[in-house]
Simulated scan of single mutants.
Amino acid sequence: MSGRVTVYDLLSRKGQSKWLQMHVDNGPEAAAAVEAGIVILSCDPDHTLVAVREAAPTALISAGMLHGSVSSPDEAIREGFAILKRGADTVYCSHSPRFIEAMAREGIPVTGHVGLVPNWAAWTSFRAIGKTADEALKVLRAVKDLENAGAATIEVEVVPVELADYITKNTPMITMGMGCGDVCDTQYLFSCDVLGTHDGRYPRHSKKYADFMALEAELQAKRVEAFRAFAAEVEDKAYPQPNHEVRMNAAEFEKFTARAQTI
């Protein structure tokens, strides 16, 4: 689609479109994502948001409010508007629904989060959430709490496909699915997993489409090789050569040295 993607675009096409979504870490990744047809991006609010917005002016950007960065609904409102001013379209918030409701009442589009919520992992551990009927009902209640608070979109992470499908079909919010099969409104992954930029654990739901760690190791080896070649040529007096130098005309240098004696 042409023009900047908006929350209205997502909500008005609920159930009609499968949107691609990527969490990106910098401007080049954002530009690459948009060029590849990925028009929903997420990023951190402080260090990457401005660069991501500049690189992807037409994308819908959800920027995360750091968990614990606000301690009251009023602070959430101020921080939410500040994040929008820096270029975000929605504010991701893993705080309680009262924070989300306060922002939503002021017209701030908010993205909530259910299922495996890393900021709440002390209570759940890092695992699939909602595999039993009782736990699935807890997830659904959390969805309804966020819906009633006024959230526009909701990240649904690592819940069973059946539960994610039920949630998607029974909420007006846009569901952003990660590790939930293909039933949510968006298909969401992190660029670091897609590009293979780290040597840590890759989640089961992720898929590595490139190996940037290997590429970076190759680049680092090339850096060392080039620096060693430079050092060796300096040692052997092979660098610099005349074509790397600037020389004065002999007559001008003679004038310079004569006058330099008076300084």
Rank of each mutant, 00 (worst) to 15 (best):
P73S: 01
P73G: 03
D74Y: 07
E75Q: 14
E75P: 04
A76R: 01
I77T: 09
I77E: 01
I77F: 07
R78Q: 13
R78E: 14
E79L: 13
F81S: 15
F81N: 15
L84C: 08
L84G: 11
R86T: 05
G87V: 01
G87T: 00
A88K: 00
D89H: 12
D89E: 09
V91W: 00
V91L: 06
C93T: 01
S94Q: 04
S94L: 05
H95E: 15
H95D: 12
S96E: 13
S96A: 15
S96R: 12
P97C: 04
P97H: 07
R98H: 15
R98V: 13
F99Q: 03
I100P: 03
E101P: 08
E101D: 11
E101N: 14
A102P: 09
A102D: 00
A102G: 03
M103V: 03
M103Q: 02
A104E: 04
A104W: 03
R105Y: 00
E106C: 08
G107Y: 06
G107N: 08
G107I: 08
G107Q: 08
I108P: 08
P109L: 06
P109V: 07
P109D: 05
V110W: 05
G112S: 13
V114F: 05
V114D: 04
G115W: 06
G115T: 01
G115S: 02
L116F: 10
L116E: 04
N119G: 14
N119F: 15
N119R: 15
W123T: 00
W123I: 01
W123G: 01
T124P: 02
T124L: 01
T124Y: 04
S125Y: 10
S125H: 09
F126I: 12
F126D: 10
F126G: 04
A128D: 06
A128Q: 04
A128S: 07
I129D: 04
I129S: 05
I129F: 09
G130S: 12
G130R: 10
K131I: 12
K131A: 13
K131N: 13
T132G: 03
A133L: 13
D134R: 13
E135W: 06
A136M: 11
A136P: 02
L137V: 10
L137P: 07
L140Y: 15
L140D: 10
L140W: 15
R141N: 11
A142F: 14
A142C: 14
K144F: 08
K144V: 05
D145W: 12
E147K: 02
E147R: 03
E147I: 01
N148G: 00
A149Y: 09
A149C: 08
A149V: 03
A151V: 11
A152D: 05
A152E: 09
T153P: 01
T153R: 00
T153Q: 06
E155G: 10
E155Y: 12
E155V: 13
E155Q: 13
V156K: 13
V158D: 07
V158G: 00
V159C: 15
